[in-house]
Design a protein around this nucleic acid. Structure first.
Length: 286
DNA sequence: CCTCTATGGCGAA
DNA sequence: TCGCCCTAGAGGC
């Protein structure tokens, strides 16, 4: 679930549902109980995201900083007559009850499995955001900052793309997919890229992440490679969109038919097509 | 029941 | 580089 698009979508949804309301804040699981008590029944002002960080802002500049980590979820349920008791390990619950009896119902959001959930102020928020590289989803992002780092680095581009201090919001799926779409081998050193290649990838990420925000899932295949266009079965992974190489080890590449390869880079699974993303530049064939 | 995996990231060594 | 944190779902026995 959680790459940058998930957090941006979540921020928008939380703001739409809760902003302007005095929200009941609780921690059924208990781990956030003391902080929850501080902001309970106060005004929720808004929500924003930066990279994979989520900031839910309450009045008096009190901010709940959430990082979902690998397995966290923040599920929003709107318009229910009865608010159910929490199921499982709910660390944070936001609840807005309708005051009128016009049938609008109540809405709540449950946070589970997050790596981080803490109450902070604006200074700390600025510090967290300040450490992040440009986020393709933010209009104020400056890709030149990322290029300055990448163009000087001997590290593999597949590593650099996942480094949140260099480029914020890209995770393992977008990394694999954007490299495929640009026919770039994941182990190629950052400093060997041409500026135009980076700019094309950045532009592509802006579009792909934006589509992820709209769709709530990661889709990266071009129209000619969709299941409908190719007459193949759609991907069945839970919540997964249509992708070229991510988690398709051993399966035929949608473009050339080669078997998709996998390896581990900096502790994360890497996926690529050996023919579409050659390790070394090959001369054009005559 | 158990084990494994996961779209993250941290700190210790 | 490794272990560890967080949780849930899938699959094996």
């Amino acid at each position: 679930m959680p790459e940058g698009h998930t957090l941006r979508r979540l921020a928008a949804a939380l703001a739409a549902v809760f902003a302007g309301s005095h929200v009941t804040v609780s921690s059924p699981q208990g781990r956030f109980a003391a902080d929850a008590a501080v902001i309970d029944a106060t005004l929720l002002v808004g929500a924003d995201s930066a990279g994979k960080h989520l900031f839910v802002e309450f009045e008096h500049e009190r901010i709940v900083h959430v990082h979902l980590g690998l397995i966290g979820r923040f599920d929003i349920v709107t318009g229910v007559e009865e608010v159910p008791a929490p199921i499982g390990q709910v660390r944070l619950r936001l609840l807005a009850s309708s005051s009128t009896g016009s049938g609008a119902g109540s809405s709540y959001a449950d946070l589970r499995g997050a790596r981080q959930c803490e109450l902070i102020g604006t200074a700390r928020r600025d510090e967290i955001v300040g450490r992040l590289g440009p986020d393709p989803l933010r209009a104020d992002a400056d890709p030149a900052r990322a290029w300055a780092r990448i163009s000087r680095s001997p590290r593999p581009i597949g590593d650099l793309l996942m480094d949140q201090q260099i480029l914020a919001g890209v995770g393992n799926v977008y990394r694999a997919e954007v490299l495929f779409r640009h026919r770039m081998h994941p182990l190629r050193a950052g400093r060997t890229l041409r500026r135009g290649q980076f700019e094309a990838m950045w532009h592509d990420l802006v579009g792909l992440l934006g589509e992820g925000v709209r769709n709530g899932r990661i889709d990266t295949v071009r129209p000619e490679h969709t299941p409908e266009a190719m007459g193949r079965a759609p991907r069945t992974d839970r919540g997964g969109g249509e992708v070229y190489v991510y988690r398709r080890t051993g399966q035929p590449c949608l473009v050339c038919g080669s078997r998709v390869r996998t390896d581990v880079l900096v502790g994360r699974n890497l996926f690529w097509c050996p023919r579409c993303q050659p390790a070394f530049r090959t001369r054009a064939l005559h």
